[in-house]
Design a protein around this nucleic acid. Structure first.
Lengths: 225, 225
DNA sequence: GGCGGGCCTAACGGATCCTTAACGGCAGGG
DNA sequence: CCCTGCCGTTAAGGATCCGTTAGGCCCGCC
């Protein structure tokens, strides 16, 4: 079964789309805003995303950019805005097609078939770790948050890399110190605390209550995806 | 070089399209009817076809179907007909996108980029890399800026080539040094800084604020298309 | 031999980054 | 209640790294 995610804040249109798609044989999941759309995209195996640009919480283009940081799923954009600038912006952000409202259901389904046909035969694995707040691309050595690149210093990156490569696993102070600074610096100092504070300031939404870079008192740190 | 075939029976529109595409860095071949279009498609290595449906000899949809019997090249359809039936027919015949006249050149180029981006996943890495400021032709060993060729020394080219072949990926100093000068020269000196300055002076519009040849302090460099 | 292009070295201002120290919050134990 | 670890945060110094320029060396070419 082909999974399709439909994102629209209009419940009426959402119901119509869901019905039309399901009668055409697709498995449909829905979302009503950008936040929940990105979350749903991480949890379901999707073959295509239909995205309305006019969302209540996040700008639709931002949703595309964030999605594109870790996924290549085809994105078909729906929008009431029909200027060239809007279309160019969405397409260059990573969308695959742009359909202006009002549209006929036949055309939507045809464009959907075209996209699915084109992307039917590719699925390369991606060395990208993603959380709801930031994404880490190990291969490209790059970390971004809310669509924007985050600049990390060499030591910050090294620490983050070690933690991210061992999700949910507890890494001791000693291991981090020797891996980053070398065996000579294995004795505890407060380098680590300083850099963890830096990392959290750059990546965590609430520095006081970290959600992904957790500390295990007296032992070490842990990365929670 | 990214080859694009443009098929249209209106010589005026054809000339406009050809010019717009060439200034964007594509290699354009043209055809004025369906017969010659199918012939041209067999003879040139193409990355994309832009096809006007209103041709004098063969019906456009038939052209798509015939083309699809042996080629998977992305097809972007132009047409004055804007009914759902026309779009569905063309898309289901094998077209990848359907753009109704009149259209803005910006939108056409954006949709073209979207199609090329999608189909680039299957093919080996592109022989031509284009940025808004300069283009690099890996195959022909040439780089041009604002239409004019840029003279690069052998070492400058080697550095640029390595960076461009790994878009957005961070390349460490060590890797650049060993790849360009050999393993013996892996120890840091400042050749690299000198040559990066040279490259930026030749390619970047604002040397002080590089937009494509980015430096990652303490680690290496990154090419941003 | 003169000449020019390409490559390496040296040096300096400026930006970035690492280290260190100091302070406050928090919990547990005396 | 105070004392003591442990952690998080901030700020400032000094060290390191980067970009840039200038000059000298080497080699091929006129």
């Amino acid at each position: 079964m082909t999974g399709v995610l439909v994102v629209d804040d209009d419940p009426h249109l959402l119901r119509i789309l869901k019905l039309a798609l399901e009668t055409s044989g697709y498995a449909v999941t829905t979302a009503v805003d950008g936040r929940s759309a990105l979350l749903a995209a991480t949890q379901n195996p999707l073959a295509l995303v239909i995205l309305d640009l006019g969302l209540p919480d996040i700008d639709g283009v931002t949703v595309i950019k964030e999605l594109r940081e870790w996924s290549r799923v085809p994105v078909l954009v729906l929008s009431a805005r029909h200027t060239s600038e809007d279309k160019v912006e969405a397409l260059d952000a990573g969308a695959d097609d742009y359909l202006t409202k009002p549209f006929g259901p036949d055309e939507l389904l045809a464009r959907l078939r075209a996209l699915l046909r084109r992307s039917a035969d590719l699925q390369p694995p991606e060395p990208v770790v993603v959380t709801e707040n930031f994404t880490v691309d190990l291969a490209k050595h790059r970390v971004s948050r809310e669509g924007a690149d985050v600049r990390l210093t060499p030591i910050e990156w090294k620490i983050l890399e070690i933690l991210v490569r061992n999700p949910e696993k507890l890494i001791t102070h000693r291991q981090l110190l020797t891996d980053v600074w070398g065996p000579a610096y294995a004795k505890d100092s407060n380098y680590l605390r300083v850099f963890m504070a830096q990392l959290r300031r750059k990546l965590e939404p609430d520095t006081g209550n970290p959600r992904h870079l957790l500390t295990e008192a007296g032992i070490g740190y842990r990365f929670q995806p």
